[in-house]
Structures are given as structure tokens and as C-alpha cells.
Write a protein that binds this DNA or RNA. Structure first.
Lengths: 237, 237, 237, 237
DNA sequence: AATGAATGAGCGTTCATTCAT
DNA sequence: GATGAATGAACGCTCATTCAT
């Protein structure tokens, strides 16, 4: 029993990776509608039958892509969460990671959006669905962990009855909403929003300030910190 | 010469309304892909040709629905913005309106989401496109107007270089993102977010607190205020 | 009983003329497929029902247009046939008329072509069909009359068993074929046929020369004659 | 490694041939408008999808048919042009080939006519378009080659400034026009043209006589020659 | 007489999926 | 295991024609 995979298995994995790569590009370029098994097969220079041996329907491909995306996001969040410093600084680092994720892997982000808009669930295997939920959970958990650290250190207080997850939900919504609007609107500038990414950062930090999370953004230049994180942690991501 | 429309014209309008009503339901139930002219026609018990006499392609229907939705939202925002009280209270009123909008017209909100995800623009008339942009602009304008009022009264200060629109963009993102996640996730509860709508409210208010907007949420029970607005202004919307 | 038409009748006729005018333009611009009752009605700013009161189906319109075209051609041939001179000169005059017809009324010619390519006959009234056949007959008759004049004057001889109509059929074919090819080919120049209209003229005259029709084209400058006819007879046609 | 095609490939080719055969019949029976992918599929007893795997749109089928037709015509012209004898006799042989073509492959001729009347070009591949143009060119070239031979041997003279191609254009027009009229008119007999094919032959020969091409039709029985060619060269075409 | 809403068969085309080879 | 021919339902859309008003 070889520790390494057989050649066949290796080829199979490589093919699968190529399918996903192609699918990702397609999905982000032409959307859910534009992604077709025919096209993938043609571009792969494999037959459709072969594609179906890897993914038993179109939706499975999309869910697999979503899993890749979430895995990447998770990994980046994990990296960011290790940033040395007080919890609020680590929150900023995660914010930087989220920024970096959208900027550096726009196709991944596009997949995340599509998965939220198209109804994919009925036809997909519960295994992949669970994997996706677990990724999502772990992402959330990383962030809520930092919140808990902040609470433990007395850097912030939560309103009665509110959980760390509630706070994270706010940040998540803000981030996801901002990039969704950003991606789908071309009239932001006309409406006085000339630098939406900066506006997003401000909003995040003011929200945390609103929770009284120390050090407040008047006391620490989180903008500079985020740039630093992006440079140092994700320079060659 | 009747001041009112002729019977024919009335019938036409009613039919058009029915098409939109059906389209709206379909769109929110089965999404952009599931909406088909065939299905609309079948369900209307009219022929396809008749539908096409009202809307010259599928995308026009969707854009018309989006315009309805934005018009409704605009109207609700306008109403909320007249709420008596200090600017920050009026902001809360608008927040309540946004909540009410999604809750009371979930189909309208679904349309707003779909329009952001599907590429509809190429086939639609520029007239409808402009109408939509203008609605969006006016919505934004209402809210940024309240921000300006707050600034004028010295209730809040904006960071250097940031515009009222930037602040509004944050709230908009937060709101849109929260309801998008809320709508497309069924595992929030499992992840510790048991009441996402309440979490959204908190996030909004903490963000405004973060801008130092008086009166802060410690000083005024905005939750109660929002409930009051929903009861008094939108009771029978 | 008024000698003149009533106002209603006049209006009816004018409307009918407008329908045909519009139909003719459409037919020549977008072909048989592009001609639609919808479009005619829209452009006329009349209702479809009204159009149908004039022509009970699409094909009737086309046949009516064909009749107009043939009537015009007939009229031009009649005019040309009165050209003073020997029969062969009158043949040249008719050739000039045919040229003029295509050049000056390209839409009429387009209709003649369409009528030969689309199957229109099944749905049209026998009355219009007969009118068309009679026009065609009379056109032919004019030309064959000139041939008979030539024969009578001993200017040409026909091979045994051949009729004047056979000769005319040749000219007709040549003319119709040349303009059909001309209209539908854009590569004539590439194939060495730089001036097809001139080539057509030559072919015609050489054919008549081949019948020994006096005066032969070596003896009389038929090219100049045709130009003269076009100038003098059809200057302001 | 088989020199011949695999069974699959053979089947594919056969199916393609059947599609074209069916298309040809349809086209000649019900015209461009009557030809529909639905009907082809139904009559083939294959699904529409299968048809589309061979031809990516309707127009491609028609152009393929046109290419078949032109290829056949080209081949027949090439055969005829090898007829032993003086150039003018070879011209007659080509005339016989043209006759044989229309008589023996009326569907091919019908396709040639349809391609001249319907606008097919926009949707078809440039490859097929070029093939068609090249066939046309080569057809023309064969005939103009014979004219050049005649010129070289001093059998005819061309008017100043006229090319062999101009002469060929005349014959082409004559032939194409005659068969077009013949095909679309059922009243020729009533108008004194009892044998239009014979009339066409006469016209051709008189035209060549008009160019003084030796031997003239008085000196050589081209009618008999053409029959001989049809019998000997195309007996079992 | 005039209208135009309504029809509905038909069109060309796409595409996820199956399955014999 | 890989192939790709075959499927067939579905799609968006057109248009000649009818007919109640």
C-alpha cells in the first residue's frame, strides 16, 4: 500500500482541480447561467462523460467551488487571527484579510455571492453541504473567538443578552453587503461614495468603537494597521 | 371626454399589474432562472403573445418589478424621514422602515437582490434603467439628508474627508448584507445568532454610536423607538 | 350618383396606396420575411384590423405590389416601344426601358424577384393572379410585337420552328438573370466582371446580332442609342 | 490503426448526409421558409439536439447544401470542358452540362436560387462562405478558360474593352434567368413559349454567333451536339 | 368602419443528463 | 475509464390572424 497516491489517483485529482479552475473562471466571468457542462468539457478537452464522473451535476461543481472559496477565506482568517497584539488589533487584521480575500480572489468572492443567490441545494450531496456549513462555522468561530478574547480582557462589553456571534454577524453583514453593492453598482461615485472600500473600513471601525472596544479608533490608526497586515501577512498570498 | 381612463385602458393596467404580481411571486419563489414567460402565461391563463404585448422581454418585467420595489422602499423611507424628533431618532425611524420593508414586502426585497445578481441590463430600456437609478439615488439622498441635519445640529462629527454618503453606504451595506445572509442561510441559529434582526439593529446603532451621534444608544432606547415607528407609521402598510 | 368618388372612397384608396408604399419599401429593405403586418400597421399608425380590411392576408399585399411593379414595367415598355426607328432600334429602346426600370424602381424589381421565389400563390385571390398574368403577357406581347415587325420588314429571320416569343424569352431570361445575379453577388468584380450592366447590354445585342437582326451592332451604336432613350424618354420617370 | 474511418465516424457522416438530403428535399419543396429544424428533426426521427450537433444553425445547413450544389455543378462543368473539339463545341458541351444539372439535380438548382434570394450570410461560418465563393469562381473560370482558348485560336473576337468574363456573365445570366423563370412560371406555354429549354439553347447559340464565334450555329448542329454530350458524358450521372 | 387585445402554433436554440460503445 | 452521440424539455420570442367592442 503506497503512502503516495497511484498515478491514476493523481491524474484524477489533477483533472478535478482543472475542472474547478475552469468552472471558477467561467462562473465569475459569465455567471451561473453561463457556466455549462458543455463549455467546461470543451475547454477542458475532455468529454462530458468524464466531467460527470467527477461531479454528478452542475450544482455539485458550484458547491465544490464554494467550498474552495470558503476554505481559502478560512485559511486567510486563521492567518490574520494570529496577528500579535490586542484583540481589537486582531479584529482589524481579520478585516484586512477579508479585504485581501475579495481583492485577491475576486472569483472566490463571486462564487460566494452566487451560492447565496442561486438555489443549488436541492441537487447537491449532503456531504458537500455539511463541509460548507462547517467552513462557514469555523470562519465565524475564528472571529467570535477574538471577540471573546476582547471580552475576557475587558476591552469591550456586550449589551445584555447579545452574544459575540451577534457582533460578528454585524461585521459579516457589513462586509458582505458592501462588496456586493460595490460589485453590482456602477453609480456609487455619482452618489457621493467615491471610495467605498475606505467607507467600509470606517464603518467597521466605528461599529467596534460603538461597542466601546479598546483601543478606540481615535487612539490607534487602524487604517495604517490594516495596510500593514495586508503587506506583511498577505504580501504574496 | 372622460377624465378617468377608458375601460380598455383600465383593463390593460390591471392585466399589467397581474403580470407583475405573478412575476414577483415567481421571482421570489424560484428565482431569476425559474421565472419564465411560459410559466407566467400559463399561470395568468393568458397566451404568451399577450404577455409580450405588455413587456417586450423577460428582463423588462424584472426591471419593472425592481422599480416597483424601489419605489415602495423610497416611499417608506420618505415617510419615516418625517418622523418628528432629532436626526438620530429619524435615522432610527428609517432603520425601522427598512426592517418593515423586508418583513412586509419580502418579495420586493427578493427582487432587489436578484437585480443585483443577474445581468439584466443589456436588454432593458434605458428609460426603466434611469428610473431605477433615480429611485436608488433618492433613497440614498433621504438618508444622507438626515445625516446632514445631524451634522448641522452638531449631533455628530464625520472623520476628515468622509461624506455623509460614506456613512450611509455603511448602513446600506449592513442592512442589505444582513438580510441577504439572513435570507440565504438557515444555520444562523446553529452558529449562535438566534435573533439576526435584533443583531442587525444593534449593529446599526453601535455604528452610529461609533460616530458619536447624539443621543447615543445608551441614552435613548432606539429599540423601543423602532418598534414604535413600525407600529405608528407602518401599522397598516 | 357622383362621378367622382365619395370622400370615404377616396380615403380608402389613399390608405391602400400608403399600405402598398410602405409594404414595398419594407419588402425591398428586409425581404419577404421582414414584411410583417404588425410592422406595416405600426408604421402606418393604423390598426392591424384596418389593414386586413384592405388585404385579407400578407400574400395579397405582396401580389398587389407585384402587380404595381408589372404595371409600371408594362407602361415603360409601352413607352419605349413607340420609339421611332427600325424595329431593332425599338428593341434597344425596350432594353433601355428594362435598364431604367431596375435602376429607377429597384423596389419594384425586388418585388418581381420575391414573387418568383416565395410561394405566394395558394393564398391569393385568382383575380389578382389573373391580373398579374395579364400584365406579364402584355409585356411579352409588346416585345414580341416588335420582333414581328422586324420579321415583317425582313430585318431578321427566325430559325425553323421558333416563334418571336422564343426570342423574347431569351432576352427576358438574360435580363432577369443578369439583374438577379447582379443584385445578389458582391464578388462579380473579383471575378473579372467589372461592369455587369454593360456586359448585359453587349450580350443582348450580340444575341440579336446572332439572329442576324439588321442593322447589326457593328453598323449602329446601340449603346449610344440606349443612353439616348434613357435620357429622352425616361429623363424624369 | 485503420486507414478507413471508424464506424462512429462513418455513422456521423452518413447522418450528416441524411440531414442534407432531407434538407435539400425540403428546401426545394417548401422553400427557405418551409425548412425548419423542427421538421428536419421530426422527419429524420432524430431529436433537434442531434441535428444541432452537426450544424450549429439553420443557415449552415442551407449553405452546406449550396456548397454541395455548386460542387456538383463545378464537377459537371469540368467534365464537360474536357469534351474534345474546338472551343465553341466545348462551350456547347458546358451548356449541355448546365442543362443536365438543372434537369438531373433540380433540388441542387433550387438551392442555388434560394441562396440568391435569402439572406443567409450573417450567421454562417466564413469558411463555408469562402468555399462557396471559390466554387463559383472556379465554375466561372472553367468557362472563361474555354473562351480564352477560342480567342487564342482566333475563333472569336471580343469587343474592345470586354473580357472573357463579361461574355460568360451573359451566358450565366441567360441560363440562370431562363431556369428561374421556367421554374416559377406556369404560363409560358400560354404565351407562345412552348419549349423554353430549346429557346434557351437557341438564345445561347445565337449569342455566341453574335460574337462571331466559329463555327457558327449554321455550320454545326449544336443542338445535336448537346444531346450527344448529354448522352455520352452524363448518361448515368 | 376601426380598433388592438388575444391567440397559439411555430420558430431557432440551449443544455443537463444519459448510456451504448 | 472515457467517450460523445442522443435526448427532449424548456426557453425566449414572433407573427398572421381573429373578433369583441
Amino acid at each position: 500500500m503506497p503512502r503516495t497516491l497511484t498515478r491514476k489517483q493523481r491524474e484524477r485529482q489533477e483533472r478535478e482541480a482543472r475542472i474547478l479552475e475552469l468552472g471558477r473562471t467561467m462562473l465569475s466571468e459569465v455567471g451561473y447561467l453561463g457556466l455549462s457542462m458543455d463549455r467546461i468539457a470543451a475547454e477542458m478537452e475532455y468529454s462530458k462523460g468524464t466531467i460527470y464522473q467527477h461531479f454528478c451535476n452542475k450544482e455539485e461543481i458550484i458547491l465544490a467551488l464554494a467550498n474552495e472559496a470558503l476554505e481559502k477565506r478560512l485559511q486567510m482568517f486563521e492567518q490574520a487571527a494570529t496577528w500579535p497584539g490586542r484583540p481589537r488589533e486582531r479584529m482589524a487584521a481579520i478585516g484586512a484579510a477579508a479585504e485581501e480575500f475579495v481583492e485577491h480572489y475576486p472569483q472566490h468572492f463571486a462564487v460566494e455571492q452566487i451560492v447565496r443567490s442561486a438555489s443549488i441545494w436541492e441537487k447537491t450531496s449532503s456531504q458537500r453541504q455539511e463541509f460548507m456549513h462547517s467552513c462557514e462555522s469555523r470562519c465565524l468561530h475564528i472571529v467570535s473567538g477574538v471577540v471573546r478574547d476582547g471580552l475576557a480582557q475587558g476591552d469591550l462589553k456586550l449589551p445584555a443578552g447579545r452574544t459575540p456571534e451577534d457582533l460578528v454577524f454585524g461585521l459579516w453583514s457589513l462586509n458582505f453587503g458592501a462588496y456586493t453593492i460595490l460589485t453590482s453598482s456602477d453609480s456609487l461615485g455619482d452618489n457621493g461614495i467615491s471610495d467605498p472600500v475606505l467607507a467600509l473600513r470606517q464603518s467597521q471601525h466605528r461599529m467596534l468603537d460603538g461597542y466601546g472596544w479598546q483601543p478606540l479608533s481615535q487612539e490607534l490608526d487602524y487604517m495604517a494597521l490594516m495596510d500593514q497586515v495586508k503587506n506583511e501577512v498577505f504580501r504574496d498570498a
